[in-house]
């Protein structure tokens, strides 16, 4: 039984890292812009589709351009649409981004059709690594490495660079940041683009093991919201901790009560919010409280 628990726990951490990548982008967008981005899942899907296009056109090496392209699309959308939502009721941003998500999904369906697109794992990452009872696929191990590099890189950027300090200060007091002569609207555009880039990176990584369909974002957005709620709205470290927690709880539920696997994360969220209403590492947010 110990073997089984160990295997499923490690598998849960791997799954959790994909969730973390989606949730961190969502958390940053909320934490720094105050926008509840319901279109986040659509950017996840957009990343998968653009990654697929790049793969078909140029090969595997080019798929990493997809998150950058999606980040650029996100910045353009921020300029023309999202920027109009700053300082407004959170409900408005929720409705507008929900509509934006539907629009992106409809465009994907229009361009690529409702059927899924075949996208297999690369041959150079085929196979599994077995160590005693532990089994990890080479692809998931690569996903884990990519996710760790992105998350750690982001943390270093936010913590140790002056630009990161500006972002964090702006999330608390944007007027003060502007008074210091910093072009804060540009900062906001870049932050939204960063959130979209992270969603798209998760989409690219998930595409070879998930169905690539226009509505694939819906499968990512709900766990992401649950993770952000458990970790604490706007908390970077909270999103990481809760993403891993949700991954492990889900896989252990599969082992013992498989039919409840999807419900497990919602039960976890209920229990966490019962004792920590702002999430595990959440802080007070004047914008929404």
């Amino acid at each position: 039984m110990i073997d089984v628990l160990l295997t499923q726990t490690i598998n849960g951490l791997m799954l959790g890292m994909i969730y973390v990548l989606v949730a961190v982008g969502l958390s940053i967008t909320f934490g720094m812009l105050g926008i509840i981005n319901f279109a986040h899942g659509a950017f996840f899907a957009l990343g998968a589709y653009i990654g697929l296009l790049f793969f078909r056109t140029f090969g595997w090496w080019a798929i990493w351009l997809a998150p950058l392209v999606v980040g650029g699309i996100g910045m353009a959308l921020e300029k023309v649409l999202i920027s109009k939502l700053y300082g407004r009721e959170p409900l408005i941003s929720l409705v507008v981004t929900f509509a934006l998500g539907l629009l992106i999904e409809a465009i994907l369906r229009w361009v690529f059709g409702p059927a899924g697109q075949p996208f297999a794992t690369p041959k150079f990452l085929a196979g599994v690594i077995e160590y005693g009872p532990i089994l990890i696929t080479k692809y998931r191990f690569a996903v884990l490495l990519c996710s760790v590099v992105i998350v750690v890189g982001l943390w270093l950027f936010l913590t140790y660079t002056s630009y990161g300090h500006v972002l964090q200060a702006g999330s608390k007091d944007p007027e003060m940041v502007e008074m210091l002569g910093i072009d804060f609207p540009l900062v906001q555009t870049l932050v939204f683009g960063l959130g979209c880039t992270l969603a798209a990176a998760a989409g690219v990584l998930a595409a070879p093991i998930w169905a690539v369909i226009p509505s694939m974002g819906a499968s990512a957005i709900m766990p992401a919201f649950v993770i952000v709620a458990i970790g604490g709205l706007g908390s970077f470290s909270g999103a990481v901790v809760s993403g891993l927690l949700v991954g492990v709880v889900t896989t252990l539920t599969v082992q013992f009560k498989p039919e409840a696997a999807t419900a497990a994360m919602y039960v976890l969220m209920f229990l966490v919010l019962l004792f920590f209403p702002r999430g595990i590492l959440g802080k007070s947010w004047e914008r929404v409280e």
């Binding site: 499923q8 849960g12 799954l15 696929t137 998931r140 499968s219 498989p258 039919e259 696997a261 999807t262």
Partner: peptide, 20 residues
């Protein structure tokens, strides 16, 4: 026997059980 909730994205845990 595994009964899987609809719209499950990750089957790795189920597959590990089947493998065992």
């Amino acid at each position: 026997i595994d009964e899987v909730p609809g719209d499950t994205t990750d089957f790795s845990s189920y597959i590990l059980k089947i493998r065992a």
